[in-house]
Design a protein around this nucleic acid. Structure first.
Lengths: 205, 205
DNA sequence: TTTTCAATGTGAGCGCTGTTCACTTGAGGG
DNA sequence: CCCTCAAGTGAACAGCGCTCACATTGAAAA
């Protein structure tokens, strides 16, 4: 990933820049991520980044897209290995676990001021996640209201997202480690059970 | 609020700066808020701001504190006028309505990288909000785990916070106006009812 | 009333940022 | 073998947060 000083061309700068964003964001926080910092980390001139991304927002959009795909993959894996009677619980916990493990990715995914939400690749990725949530509990997060969410679906997604956001921002569970947070979240989501009785959401469709 | 050109001393720069933050944040987004921009809006030299706030983070912390108090007041008002059998519903909807009305305030309240969460005034404000949530549904958001949240309380707070966050970031209800969002949120929160049956949270303690 | 002084403003300047632009490099196809 | 063009460089720009020496003031002290 580091640019060898001998070589003039890097070869995979676009990908390396995304890695650099993750590295810096995870270590120093999202607003400590600097184009010049990423370039220096890779060993390349700052202006080289603009050959691959129109501006910083485009870089962040690509990073968010990568994040959405990573989260979708993790949730798909959780859905596939879920043996219990509550697949939505496992998928939701995968959502939360992703946020706890990859803080910066979760944060940038939803920060509309840092990304270009109209970017086609970003939209594709968010639709993928939407479809996944539809399978698990919620439906179509970016389908522009052509498919209304049921109250239960909305509730499920909001709970999971709210828990993750509160953990990630540090407003909740400041003293708890990751396992304790997940256990706490599990019990909260289990309390959701009665609200789903008789709906299409309880065990498996 | 505007600095009269004749006067050398402004008189209430600290407060005016907070207003300027709100104005710029609400009009151009949170990261478009600039110390120099705030100073120019008021009609004062940029360096004057540092006589009242140590740095930009301190200004944002004061702004977040103001936001917490404003939100608490709005929730208190909702609790006071709530006549229905579900005071938590009204308080929760007040939470969501505040986020929809005052986007920038809601965003900055929880953005731990922009503020100093150890600031005593900020802590006081967040404890006030915590106490309010305790009365409505949840308990002690910043009491460092000396008072564990019940699963139901956690669920209620997460749902309300998750809904607000998704609306505010534009991930949900992009085509809906504020009233429609509130109606949608109400139905989602109403679906929470069965989860609270038999707990201390259903009508009024 | 006059003096003094701390609080509150100014303006220049520092190193950083994102971004642009003219230029250089070098790998691959004719 | 040369030629082209994507992919690199480095200098420059305005705007950013922030500091510091200095100016201006209202009010307390004399």
């Amino acid at each position: 990933m580091q640019h060898k000083p001998g070589r003039y061309h890097h070869g995979a700068l676009a990908e390396s820049l995304l890695d650099a964003v993750e590295e810096l964001a995870e270590r120093f926080g999202l607003e400590a991520v600097t184009l010049r910092g990423c370039a220096k980390l890779i060993g390349v001139a700052p202006s080289a980044a603009f050959k691959h991304y129109r501006d910083k927002r485009a870089l962040f959009t690509a990073f968010a897209t990568k994040a959405l795909h990573a989260m979708a993959a993790q949730m798909e894996a959780a859905a596939a290995t879920s043996a219990g009677p509550h697949p939505f619980l496992d998928v939701g916990l995968a959502y939360i676990a992703f946020g706890l493990q990859r803080r910066a990715m979760f944060q940038v995914m939803w920060r509309s001021e840092l990304i270009d939400a109209h970017d086609p690749e970003y939209r594709r990725a968010s639709l993928r996640l939407g479809a996944l949530l539809a399978g698990g509990f919620a439906d179509s997060l970016t389908d522009d209201d052509q498919h209304a969410l049921s109250p239960q679906e909305l509730l499920a997604w909001s709970s999971v997202h709210g828990l993750t956001a509160l953990y990630v921002e540090g407003a909740l569970g400041a003293g708890l480690d990751q396992a304790a947070k997940l256990a706490q979240a599990r019990s909260a989501l289990l309390a959701l059970g009665p609200s789903f009785s008789g709906s299409e959401l309880k065990p498996r469709t």
